[in-house]
Nucleic acid binder design. Structure first.
Length: 250
DNA sequence: CCCCAGGGAATTC
DNA sequence: GAATTCCATGGG
């Protein structure tokens, strides 16, 4: 299977990525200075870590992780950590605190929305996330959460075996010639889904997405750096010398 | 100066 | 459904 070969080559070249980084755990046992947890290991999450992953997934929408880290750090400085903290923070102040992550007014609103859902003592019309089961449908119903963010939360916060499709995924797959570039999110996701029931499957999805991000940052940038690329010999764009991307996959 | 970054919603056709 | 436009900081 092409997807297994692709995974193996990236893993051999980049190693385990240790996602999702949890900045509040940076420097703690099992985590490096940036909050990643390198190695073939996916730690269980307590409530606080899970919510930090959810916050990070929201803030990193179309935004570099370094800017998200600054925002999360600022939130910690201001003691705005829990859903309850976020709910009681004035909108303008919350926007200021997450300013570095960009789109700060929208993201402040998104944080409010998801905090309303995850707060223990807040009842929206829908059931509380912690009194029931979080599903993709429920996450998608929240303003500010689309398919990628929902799947990132399901995979990295809850360890569900869900394959996350992002801009990097589309860019890499289209350059490799595995997709044309016009496929929908769900179509691409299906390519990497398997029916087999496997308790370790979420680790495969976890590592695969993280490896895609690493590969896209190192070689498969918008302006590709093909010299030394470990996937060059199986890349259509490399062979033809043309960027075959149809869509604008940044 | 320019381009880019771990998207999503609203609008329009 | 597909194509546009808006949201915005910080680093290269």
């Amino acid at each position: 299977m092409i997807k297994d070969r692709l995974f193996r080559i990236m893993l051999e070249n980049y190693g385990y990525q240790g996602w999702w980084p949890i900045t509040s755990m940076a420097g703690e046992e099992g985590f490096n200075s940036l909050g990643y947890h390198p190695g073939d290991y996916t730690p269980p999450h307590n409530k606080a870590e899970r919510f930090e992953i959810i916050v990070g997934a929201l803030l990193t929408q179309n935004t570099s992780w370094i800017n998200v880290e600054k925002a999360i750090e600022h939130m910690r400085m201001e003691a705005i950590i829990t859903p309850e903290d976020i709910l009681k923070t004035p909108p303008d102040k919350l926007a200021f605190v997450v300013k570095s992550s960009g789109y700060y007014n929208e993201k402040a609103k998104k944080l409010k929305r998801i905090s309303g859902f995850f707060a223990d003592d807040v009842k929206l019309e829908k059931e509380s996330a912690f009194s029931g089961i979080v599903t993709r449908e429920i996450l998608l119903s929240l303003w500010g959460i689309g398919k990628e963010t929902a799947d990132s939360i399901l995979l990295y916060a809850y360890h569900y075996p869900v394959f996350v499709v992002d801009t990097y995924t589309k860019r890499i797959l289209s350059r490799l010639g595995i997709i044309r570039g016009s496929e929908s999110y769900d179509e691409i996701q299906m390519l990497f889904s398997s029916e087999e029931l496997n308790a370790e499957k979420h680790k495969f999805c976890n590592e695969y997405h993280a490896l895609f991000v690493q590969h896209a940052k190192r070689y498969c940038r918008k302006k590709p750096v093909c010299s030394g690329c470990p996937l060059a010999d199986m890349c259509i764009m490399r062979k033809t010398g043309k960027n075959i991307i149809i869509g604008d996959y940044r």
